[in-house]
Simulated scan of single mutants.
Amino acid sequence: MNKELVEQLITDALGENSPLFLISLEFLVDNKISIIIDGDEGVPLNECIRLSRAVESELDREEEDFSLEVSSPDVTKPLIVFRQFKKNIGRTLSVKTAEEKIEGKLVEVIGDDIILNWSAREPKPIGKGKVTVQKSATIPYNSIIEAKVKLIF
């Protein structure tokens, strides 16, 4: 399988719709090609079909048989590309770094940092009991080990 050709075909097809971007491209056993794309405002099914056709039409099954799968990311999988954070502003994320694990609402993406806000119960400064306080954390993207969107029903 000509991997460079497939990569170029995907790049060209994604260039036709700038809100879309590549999450992963895998060449698996038995010539299976797995492409995962995302978009700033989601991925319509017709865009998966268009991308699949754009790649498949340029590859010759007579020369080398293959299977092709184009999909959008699974909501239970971690965020992989920094651009995915921007599209998830307003959602609750579970973010793991080397030092800690934080769960909070993604409120902003600035430069290479994400900002999470959450509420926490802490002991009162004076007296017994607890008080609810608002917390915030600025996390550099390069320190994130794993980040997942928390599904809330």
Rank of each mutant, 00 (worst) to 15 (best):
E99H: 04
I10H: 03
I36C: 08
G15Q: 01
V43C: 00
G39M: 06
L116P: 00
L93N: 01
N31D: 15
K148C: 06
E122M: 11
P19N: 12
S119N: 15
D60E: 11
L28P: 02
P73H: 04
S52E: 13
E69Y: 07
I145W: 07
P123G: 08
N117T: 14
P44Y: 06
F66M: 04
A54S: 14
V131D: 11
G127T: 11
L45F: 13
D12K: 14
Q84W: 07
L68W: 12
P73V: 00
V133T: 10
D65M: 00
I110N: 14
Q134L: 11
R83L: 05
I89C: 05
I102T: 15
N2W: 06
I114M: 02
D112T: 13
D60T: 04
E16C: 07
V133M: 06
E26G: 06
D60H: 09
F153D: 07
E69I: 06
L51M: 05
I114F: 02
E100S: 12
E41V: 07
S24R: 13
E103T: 15
K3N: 13
T138A: 12
K77E: 15
S67I: 02
I36P: 00
A147C: 03
V75H: 07
V55T: 08
K101S: 12
E146M: 12
S57M: 08
